[in-house]
């Protein structure tokens, strides 16, 4: 299976790549967007700021290939900034236009709590999904972020986490799965989610 990890200069590729290897597949970590053409699964990781994420995705020519890839119906996993980038607008550092694949905004925690939201927090499964196979409701995952997505369509929320507000920590729509936390930094249960994603990809197949 051709699994592509998108390298647009945004750190933690190493861990993501290792988590995929742990799931039984060696991914192609690449900064070349043309590899998305025949990819059978694509992972967009990311740490840092929304503005940088978007400008790096643009500069490396990934914006259109990612849109095309997702609309082709093939399995896509977004992690942290890779999740936030799917929405229309992020309020991080002003207003930044994102990929606009999912309707909604990315907003800052404004509840007087410490920011970044950093550490292990629980995910409440609000909708069953194969990404949660073998994942217990209320499992702990590792989060590091100051902003969170507010999807316009509540139907896309499959996991929620409480930090002052109940926010969407796992999102799914058709072929898209995205997490606000870092499954590659969440021990066994996180690796399980990578394995589940690869399983989803393997059963989806490419026609």
């Amino acid at each position: 299976m051709k699994v592509v990890v998108v390298d647009y200069g945004a750190g933690n590729l190493h861990s993501v790549s290792r988590a995929v290897v742990n799931g039984g597949t060696r991914p192609l970590v690449t900064s070349n967007p043309s590899y998305l053409h025949d990819a059978e699964a694509v992972i967009v990781p990311g740490v840092g700021a929304a503005a940088d994420t978007m400008s790096n995705l643009r500069a490396s020519g990934f914006v259109e290939p990612i849109r095309d890839y997702i609309s082709s119906g093939r399995p896509f996993l977004g992690v942290c900034m890779g999740e936030q980038a799917l929405f229309e607008v992020s309020e991080e550092g002003g207003e930044h236009e994102c990929l606009g694949i999912l309707p909604g905004r990315v907003v800052r925690f404004a509840n007087g709590l410490k920011v970044p939201h950093m550490g292990w927090n629980q995910v409440r499964i609000v909708k069953p999904h194969p990404i949660f196979d073998g994942v217990t409701d209320g499992s702990y995952f590792y989060f590091v972020h100051s902003y969170y997505p507010q999807p316009a369509d509540p139907d896309v929320v499959i996991g929620q986490t409480e930090y002052g507000v109940n926010f969407a920590s796992v999102i799914a729509r058709v072929n898209i799965v995205a997490t606000q936390f870092h499954p590659e930094k969440s021990g066994e249960v996180g690796l399980r989610m990578y394995a589940n994603f690869l399983k989803i990809a393997a059963t989806t197949g490419v026609s």
């Binding site: 190493h14 861990s15 290792r18 988590a19 742990n22 590792y142 590091v144 870092h182 590659e184 930094k185 969440s186 021990g187 066994e188 996180g190 690796l191």
Partner: peptide, 11 residues
């Protein structure tokens, strides 16, 4: 650092 990152899946 590289060898730790290869094997360890917590921050």
């Amino acid at each position: 650092v590289r060898s730790i990152a290869n094997e360890v899946f917590i921050p």
